[in-house]
């Protein structure tokens, strides 16, 4: 009789283990790399429960969690981009427009309109990164300018939720001038002593940072948001150094006095409501 026997193990192949997870139930966090149960992630407003990384929201989703239910009325929905420069890079801009319209189910990268936030009527623009990286061309410039003008006319506060890679190169110089157009409109809103809140969400860079996004009376950023004028890659190429991990994140901007506060997504509506009730 053998007193000591080697224990027997069953070998579980990794493939077999993985096969047990049905597709679409889990997602991986872009930041910490952990697996998150999708239901939990959705209930948490698409914020990673492990590291607090805020995933991008579609413009429609943002409106749903920000505006009082059923109060949002969209304006200028039909405005659509045209390829007036006949711009062709790897693909013609014309094709990019159609592709992105199908993919994002939007005419361009912004939704504008009026709705109530915590019972206060507010003019609201939400950028959608899913449409050509939330880039600002003629349509975004025009829709935002019209919205600001409407807010000035109606004497109501304004909220712009940014998420953008910057100006849309395919519209050349015209896209650059949307920066000055929107800022000039904002100045008239400002002169009328009306409140403008800028909410920065991941990522906000380039021409959007260098125009309306940076001159809110109040500037709020969601946690772990990349915010900057030049993107980190451009800076790394210029200074030939690796940038620290936290560089250009919302917490970094708070430290440097560029924004008022960093807020977790679940508290954003409440914070907006408090500002609106104080100022309006």
């Amino acid at each position: 009789m053998v007193w000591f026997r080697k224990p027997k193990y069953t070998i579980v192949t990794p493939q077999a283990k993985r096969a047990k997870i049905p597709d679409g139930l889990w997602i991986r966090c872009n930041d910490c790399g952990e697996l998150i149960f999708k239901k939990e992630w959705e209930n948490n407003l698409k914020v990673c429960p492990k590291c607090n990384y805020h995933f991008q929201l579609r413009a429609k989703e943002r409106l749903e969690i920000t505006v009082d239910e059923g109060t949002f009325e969209e304006d200028n929905k039909s405005l659509a981009p045209i390829d007036f420069l006949k711009f062709i890079d790897k693909k013609p801009y014309k094709e990019r427009i159609i592709e992105n319209q199908e993919k994002a189910q939007l005419n361009d990268a912004v939704i504008t309109g009026c709705g109530y936030i915590e019972k206060i009527k507010t003019a609201i623009a939400v950028l959608d990164f899913n449409f050509m990286g939330g880039s600002m061309g003629s349509v975004m410039g025009e829709k935002i300018t019209r919205l600001i003008e409407k807010a000035t006319d109606l004497k109501i506060p304004l909220l712009i939720v940014s998420s953008s890679g910057g100006a849309r190169m395919q519209e050349g110089i015209i896209s650059l001038f949307q920066m000055s157009k929107t800022v000039a409109a904002l100045e008239l809103h400002n002169k009328a002593k009306l409140l403008f809140i800028s909410l920065l969400t991941h990522p906000t860079t380039g021409g959007v940072t260098a125009s309306f996004a940076s001159i809110g009376d109040i500037i709020i950023a969601e946690a772990k948001t990349l915010i900057g004028f030049a993107g980190p890659r451009v800076i790394e190429q210029t200074i030939k150094e690796k940038l620290p991990y936290k560089f250009q994140q919302s917490e970094f901007l708070l430290e440097h006095g560029l924004i008022d506060m960093v807020v977790n997504r679940k508290n954003v509506k409440n914070v907006l409501g408090r500002f609106l009730h104080f100022f309006c």
């Binding site: 904002l186 940072t209 260098a210 125009s211 940076s214 001159i215 900057g228 004028f229 800076i235 006095g257």
Partner: peptide
């Protein structure tokens, strides 16, 4: 550059436009 970002390059440009 790093210093430009730390001191708000985006804000400086936007404010000048304003």
């Amino acid at each position: 550059g790093v210093g430009a970002e730390e001191r708000g390059q985006g804000e400086a440009i936007a404010r000048t436009l304003q």
